[in-house]
Design a binder for these strands. Structure first.
Length: 642
RNA sequence: GCCAACGUAGCUCAAUGGUAGAGCACUGGUUUUGUAAACCUGAGGUUGGGGGUUCAAGUCCCCCCGUUGGCUCCA
């Protein structure tokens, strides 16, 4: 007799070797139908798995996160079966689940096109309708390797598989079979045929290695039911509406042109947001004791030999030659900053020396990498270099973290992840100096009580670093800030300072960025706010809408009053009806619409309509100006008045 | 850079190989309006660029540029 204990402590018994499903049937037919897999003693197994001895049983259904993942993984196999039925010469490579779906990498000379998706889905629905069982076949590694001797991909998978038992799954009338660790759903019919969709196809290198063959990666998704699939598709639509490239056009924030691929053109509206960010940035940096400099964009090639960029980075740099002298367009700001440092002699008494630069850099990225403002070839780094003595490093890093917390908070990013990257194999500098630097970074994080993840061996060749990844309102992660200790540059540029003992020493250099790339940060902000900027960032903060042209004089006086108060305001004096003006104001994401007619003119009032809302509120002009000023000062996202 | 798809008016999109259109925006006019789009009118295009096939190309073929989705890389 075999026994299984349920989570509630009750025990069910069955014949030795009976399947997990046989046991679950004892609990109830409904559960047996809903079950996709089971956990026996913490190990996830197929329902067909025989039970011997005693154990603990947890039934997994599609409702569990684990169950959904199994549904998707099995769905990847069903898609593979469908593709093999349509293209018998297709070779299967690897088909894992990913967030919200799955993909299957396929080696096939004929291109799979979006027009083929419907055919693939149709075939998948047939396979699901046939409700064939998933049959697990186990064998030893050698036997499996012999079986797959003609398939280099599966042979590779067998070699990389953990454990001694290699398993295959067979389903479908045609005897479709694929190497897989499992577990899988009991029958193809366990999947809701209305809840699947083939999403896209893209190229992917085998093993992610650009020197290997390019495979076709077919992405699909699978949900518990049609409702969930539809919700997912709606979510994608919503995300698309937030796309900063779409909103950037709608709000006339920026544009791109063939004449400068990867170079953003900022329009007047975009510049307002840009300048608001920078104005705030300067204020905070002043508060934290930074000086600001500006160094040239184009510098003699020799500088880049000295900095090491020419050796490590020249494929990504732009060059220009004038009068037979070659110049490089800077990909980083540090070499210029070091020339500024070396322009005068330094004492430890000046330290820590914090020097910031909003530096425009160019990096030649491969064409396939560009993406709106988020990935460009020209961008502005909010850079800074801190020069200090070794014993000051940790306190300086703490100071940078404080600055980061303050700035991210102002933009509504409360949730971020921190990673500490340590010494890579290829590095310069002694182990002692690496240890000192890594301790400084770790010590700063521990002093702040911040949780962090360690990326062993992922630091730059010149020093360890801390990276900050923020989460936006859609839960997507973006790397923004970075703090790096650099041992290379101070030596290459022979930086010195006079130490308390009157000897010349090499300073420690901290290289840091808070927002990373301002262009990219603007793109992230647009998506984070879906274009609904808080008042302090909004290109147009208030718009006066007249009921008719009879109120134009009042509107003009009101506009002058708002502008005098420093508000970015305009007036819509056209002969459109008020409904049309309001609709346009909402569409253009104006935070405050001030409706004025004879009534308001008489009482010195404005009727305020809030962006995205139907509610209106009539207040005096002074009250409105004061409320708006307070919102701007607070950097709040809330528009409504108390 | 690699694989695939796409590129039509300022924007969003139509157009079996047979005269390139619509909505919004824009021009001029009518209307003087009270809370999510009044009406009329006009203008706007070497269909990304270049070559080819054809009596005829937005549409088919080739090359280039750009964009999109991924891979790789990264701020």
């Amino acid at each position: 007799m075999a026994k299984l204990e349920l989570p509630d402590g009750s025990v069910i018994e069955g014949a030795d070797g009976a399947s997990v499903l046989d046991f679950i049937r004892q609990i109830g037919p409904g559960l047996a139908k809903a079950a996709v897999c089971a956990e026996v003693d913490g190990r996830v197994v197929d329902l067909s798995c025989p039970v011997t001895n005693h154990g603990k049983l947890v039934v997994i259904t599609g409702k569990d996160a684990k169950g959904l993942e199994i549904l998707r993984h099995s769905c990847a196999h069903i898609m593979a079966e469908a593709i093999c039925a349509l293209w018998p010469q297709a070779k299967l490579v690897y088909g894992p689940t990913v967030t919200d779906g799955f993909y299957y990498d396929i080696d096939l000379d004929e291109a799979i096109r979006p027009e083929d998706f419907e055919r693939i889905e149709q075939k998948m629905r047939e396979i699901i309708a046939a409700d064939e069982p998933f049959v697990r076949i186990e064998m030893g590694r050698d036997e499996a390797a012999a079986k797959m001797a003609n398939d280099p991909y599966k042979l590779d998978n067998i070699q990389n598989a953990k454990g001694d038992v290699i398993s295959f799954y067979r389903h479908g009338a045609g005897g479709f079979e694929d190497l897989c660790r499992g577990p899988h759903i009991p029958r193809t019919g366990s999947i809701d045929a209305k809840a699947i969709k083939v999403m896209s196809v893209a190229g992917a290198y085998w093993h992610g290695d650009a020197s290997q063959k390019m495979l076709q990666r077919v992405y699909g998704t699978c949900w518990r039911n049609k409702k969930e699939l539809d919700e997912y598709l709606t979510r994608l639509e919503e995300a698309k509406k937030r796309d900063h490239r779409v909103i950037g056009k709608q709000m006339e924030l920026f544009s791109f042109h063939e004449e400068g691929p990867g170079f953003a053109f900022l329009h007047p509206n975009g510049m307002i947001v840009w300048n608001a960010i920078i104005e705030y940035w300067r204020k905070v940096h002043d508060k934290y004791g930074y000086a600001e400099i500006k160094t040239p964009i184009i510098l003699n090639e020799s500088l880049w030999h000295r900095s090491g960029h020419w050796d490590n980075y020249k494929e990504n740099m732009y060059f220009t030659t004038v009068d037979e002298v070659t110049y490089a367009v800077k990909p980083m700001n540090c070499p210029g900053g070091l020339l500024v440092y070396n322009a005068s002699k330094h004492s430890y008494r000046e330290f820590p020396l914090r020097v910031a630069e909003l530096g425009l850099v160019h990096r030649y990225e491969a064409s396939g990498q560009m993406h709106g403002l988020v990935r460009v070839r020209q961008f502005t780094q909010d850079d800074a270099h801190i020069f200090c003595m070794p014993e000051q490093a940790e306190a300086e890093v703490i100071g940078v973290i404080n600055l980061i917390e303050e700035m991210y908070g102002a933009f509504g990013f409360k949730d971020y992840r921190i990673e500490l990257s340590t010494k890579p194999e290829k590095h310069i500098g002694s182990d002692e100096i690496w240890e000192m630097a890594t301790d400084a970074l770790r010590g700063a994080l521990e002093h702040k009580g911040l949780p962090f993840q360690i990326n062993e061996g992922d630091g730059a060749f010149y020093g360890p670093k801390i990276d900050f990844h923020i989460k936006d309102c859609l839960g997507r992660s973006w790397q923004l800030g970075t703090i790096q200790l650099d041992f290379s540059m101070p030596m290459r540029f022979e930086l010195t300072y006079t130490a308390p003992d009157n000897t010349e020493k090499t300073p420690v250099m901290i290289h840091r960025a808070i927002l990373g790339s301002l262009e990219r940060f603007l793109g992230i902000l647009i998506e984070h706010y879906a274009g609904n900027f808080p008042l302090w960032l909004a290109p147009e903060q208030a718009r006066i809408l007249t009921i008719s042209e009879k109120s134009n004089d009042y509107a003009a006086a009101l506009l002058a009053r708002l502008k005098a108060a420093g508000l970015r305001a305009t007036a819509d004096l056209g002969d459109d009806k008020i409904g049309a003006k309001i609709a346009r104001g909402h569409a253009e994401r104006v935070p405050y619409m001030l409706v004025v007619g004879p009534k308001e003119a008489e009482g010195g009032l404005v009727n305020v309509r809030f962006r995205g809302s139907q509610t209106t509120q009539t207040v005096g002009v002074d009250a409105f100006v004061a409320a708006a000023a307070a919102k701007i000062a607070d950097k709040t996202e809330v528009l409504t008045f108390e």
